[in-house]
Amino acid sequence: MGETITFWVLAVVSVSAALGLVFSRKAVYSALMLGVVMLSLAVLYAVQDAPFLAAVQIIVYTGAVMMLFLFVLMLVGVDSADSLVETIKGQRFWATIAGLGFAALLALGAGNMVFAPAKGVGAVQEAGGNVPALAQLIFTRHVFAFEITSALLITAALGAMVLAHRERVRPKATQRDLARARFTGPQPSPLPGPGTYALHNAIDMPALLPDGSVSPQSINRVLARHEQEDGVRPTDPVKAALVKQVIDKDVAIEEDVAATEAAHQEDAK
C-alpha cells in the first residue's frame, strides 16, 4: 500500500517535471526540473529494493551531473533563450505528433504485458544485503566490463581537458600594455557613474551632464539590454534613443570581437 502511494505521488511529480523540462523557456528552469525528475527516480529506486542505485543516483546525477549542467549554463549564458525560428517547416508540430505517438506505442505495449507477481531481489541478496551482492556480481561475472569502465572514465577526463583547453594566441597583456591601451583609447578616465549626479541614486538612472542632458556613456549596457528584451522602453524619447544607440554600439562591438577572434584562430591554423 505504501509503495502504491509513493509511486503515484512520484509518478505525477516526475511526469509533470519532465514536461516542465521540455516546455520551460529558460534553460535554468529546465535544469531544475531535471533535478526534480532525478530525485523522484532515486526514491523510486529505493522503493524497488535498490538502495545502492538510489544513493548513486543522488550523488552522481543530482550532485555531479546537475552541477556540471548548471556550471556550463552559467558559462554559456543563462539568458540564451531558444530561437523560435523553424529551420525545418512544421518541425515542432510533427515532433509533437511523433512524441505523442511514441508515448502511446510504448505505454500501450508495456501496459498490455502480463507479468507474474514480482519475484523481488530479496532472495539473491541474502548474503549481507544489496551492496555486497552487487559487488560480487561486479567483481566476478562483469569484471571485464568494469575494467573497461575505468578506461572510459580516463578517456572522458582526458577528452574534456583537450576539448576545453584554449591555446593562448596572443601574449598576455601586462600592466604596461593595459595602461598604454587606455591612454591611446578614446577615454582615459573612468566612465561616468549612473545616477550619481541626478535626483536618483539607482543604477538604471543615467548620469546628467552639466547642461541637464543625459550622458550616453553612463547608461548601463546590461540593464539596457534587459530592458529591450523585456519590452520596457524609457518614456522619455531622448533617453530611449540613447539606449537604442548604446545597444546598437554594443552589438557592433560584439560582432567586431567575434570577427577578430575568428581571424586569430585562422592565423593559429
Binding site: V15, V22, A98, A107
Partner: peptide, 9 residues
C-alpha cells in the same frame, strides 16, 4: 515509457 517519450520529444 512516458518519461522516455517526453525526453525524445
Amino acid at each position: 515509457a512516458l518519461l522516455f517519450a517526453i525526453g525524445g520529444a
